[in-house]
């Protein structure tokens, strides 16, 4: 099978989505004897969207991946989806799957847009493969590979399974998505750790590097 992959990250090749997609693709292409291959397009090349919509229409199967932006798809991805309007309901549209990654630790943040994506597949009359959801991904591109090993192995497996069977394994998707949300008992502890600044280290480091730490609470549009 030839898989047409659209990377909807505004950061393009330099983002986390690219890394996650590559792990999926590696698994997909590793199935012996299947002859699987892929082509990859970057939606941050907005001027190419029209041509990319053509590639969508001609594809055998499609994977669209993006980072969660204000609880949905980034603007560039919505623009691309609007380019697909002429293909709504067309017979013979390719099976369509998605990957949504976010910086929030829990998968729950990505579920509302997942509902939209499933409807989008219906709108396009594409067989819906499923949506790979993973939170806590903001640091992936900066972390040493050994810290990403588990995540990469899971994406590899989902890709391999898809390469062999032509479907996303719901059990694997569910396992990857964990934590879906914080269990009730863990919430007070999480609140405490966050209050202590556990989640700030990543940002503070960058603020300091840029000499902007002192202005981090700036309110430029007040009044």
């Amino acid at each position: 099978m030839r898989l047409t992959v659209f990377n909807g990250s505004p950061r393009g090749k330099r983002g986390n989505t690219e890394i996650l997609l590559a792990q999926f693709i590696q698994g997909f292409e590793s199935v012996p004897g299947a002859g699987n291959s892929h082509e990859l397009f970057h939606l941050n090349r907005v001027k190419a969207h029209h041509a990319y919509a053509q590639a969508f229409a001609e594809a055998e199967a499609v994977l669209l991946g993006f980072p969660l932006y204000t609880d949905a798809m980034p603007g560039i991805v919505k623009a691309f989806i609007e380019e697909l309007a002429p293909y709504c309901g067309r017979a013979g549209n390719p099976p369509l799957g998605f990957l949504v990654q976010s910086g929030f630790p829990e998968a729950a943040h990505s579920r509302p847009v997942e509902v939209y994506l499933e409807k989008l597949a219906r709108r396009l009359a594409c067989p819906y493969l499923g949506t790979i959801v993973k939170g806590g991904c903001e640091g992936v591109r900066m972390m040493p590979d050994r810290m990403n090993r588990k995540l990469f192995a899971a994406l590899n497996e989902i890709g391999r399974e898809f390469g062999a069977s032509g479907r996303f394994d719901p059990a694997l998707l569910q396992k990857l998505a964990r934590p879906e949300r914080y269990p009730r008992w863990a919430i007070p502890l999480m609140s405490l750790l966050l209050k202590a600044g556990l989640g700030n280290i990543y940002w503070d480091q960058q603020l300091k590097e840029n000499g902007a730490y002192g202005q981090r609470f700036a309110r430029p549009y007040s009044g």
């Binding site: 505004p10 907005v46 980034p74 560039i76 603020l207 902007a212």
Partner: peptide, 13 residues
Amino acid sequence: YCTGCWGCWVKTP
């Protein structure tokens, strides 16, 4: 379009 640079968070807060 937002480019995901996070400048609004870590460069020019």
